[in-house]
Design a protein around this nucleic acid. Structure first.
Length: 268
DNA sequence: CTGCCCCTGTAA
DNA sequence: TTACAGGGGCAG
């Protein structure tokens, strides 16, 4: 589920639901979630922290507390967060953070690829430094993309998945951006024309901002239901189905061990 | 760069 | 039973 748009929606909603609240307890059901720190050590450090705000950076949810502490939550492949009364917890819930109003932040993560880590200010700065530019920020310009592209011989799809360059794109929205820009996913970045790169820059911003708004709307419910995902995709997971633009069958290739969907007619 | 690993869940 | 899954990290 979580690429930039979905993480953005989760972070916004979490802020609406939990800003100003104080964590009174934390419970983890599996050690993977807090690794390398032990669950009980993290739980002890979280207790008593007051939530200032919730933000997103790349595909991470950042819960900012007083005193310069930040809880970094990575949702992995299947992670999800919401705030609810402690009544019903699905089986795949791996953690819950009790709040001072009786509700709790619930962390659901069936596949256990998600992580939580409490950072101080210097550690947060280190984390930030390792990440690429936010595609919806002013720093992501056509010139920036062109400059990075010139230095990379990677296939376009693989390039877009590299979080050290541009963050937030995953398997779905990378494929969707390339479709929107009419670029073949296997095309080498340093071989793309200036025109194609401009189109890609615009496509990334358009695709992501539309997906953010959509994800935010979908997530207004207390829980994100799996059925509500996958809106508005033109190529992802549409193998063999007709291209919405030209009607030709959507193709699938494997790049970096992951599926890439594209239209062989529109994307060259 | 590819491949494997981390895990669980679902569908073919 | 096998294949595949929207994440990333690490080893060859």
């Amino acid at each position: 589920m979580p690429e930039l748009p979905e993480v953005e929606a989760v972070a916004r909603r979490l802020g609406e639901w939990a800003a100003g609240r104080t964590i009174v307890s934390a419970t983890f059901t599996r050690p993977q979630t807090t690794r390398p720190e032990s669950p009980r050590a993290l739980a002890r450090r979280l207790a008593g922290l007051r939530i200032q705000s919730v933000a997103r950076r790349a595909k991470h949810v950042l819960v900012h507390f007083d005193r310069g502490k930040t809880l970094r939550i990575h949702l992995g492949m299947t992670g999800n967060l919401w705030v609810d009364d402690p009544a019903n917890r699905p089986r795949s819930v791996r953690a819950w953070l009790g709040l001072d109003d009786g509700r709790e932040i619930v962390f659901d993560d069936s596949r256990l690829f998600g992580r939580m880590q409490l950072l101080d200010a210097p550690a947060l700065a280190d984390f930030e430094r390792a990440l690429g530019v936010e595609p919806l920020s002013d720093a992501f310009t056509p010139e920036f993309l062109t400059g990075c592209a010139a230095k990379s011989r990677k296939a376009a799809k693989v390039f877009l998945l590299d979080q050290r360059v541009v963050v937030g794109l995953g398997n779905i929205w990378a494929a969707e951006s390339l479709f929107a820009a009419r670029i073949h996913p296997a095309a080498a970045m340093n071989g793309l024309s200036a025109r194609k790169l401009r189109a890609l820059h615009a496509a990334i911003r358009e695709v992501l901002s539309a997906a953010v708004e959509s994800a935010y709307r979908e997530y207004s419910a207390p829980r994100l239901t799996p059925e509500s995902e996958g809106f508005g995709v033109s190529v992802y997971n549409r193998l063999g189905q007709p291209c919405l633009r030209c009607g030709r069958k959507i193709a699938r290739i494997v790049q970096a061990g992951r599926s890439t969907y594209f239209c062989p007619q529109c994307q060259r």
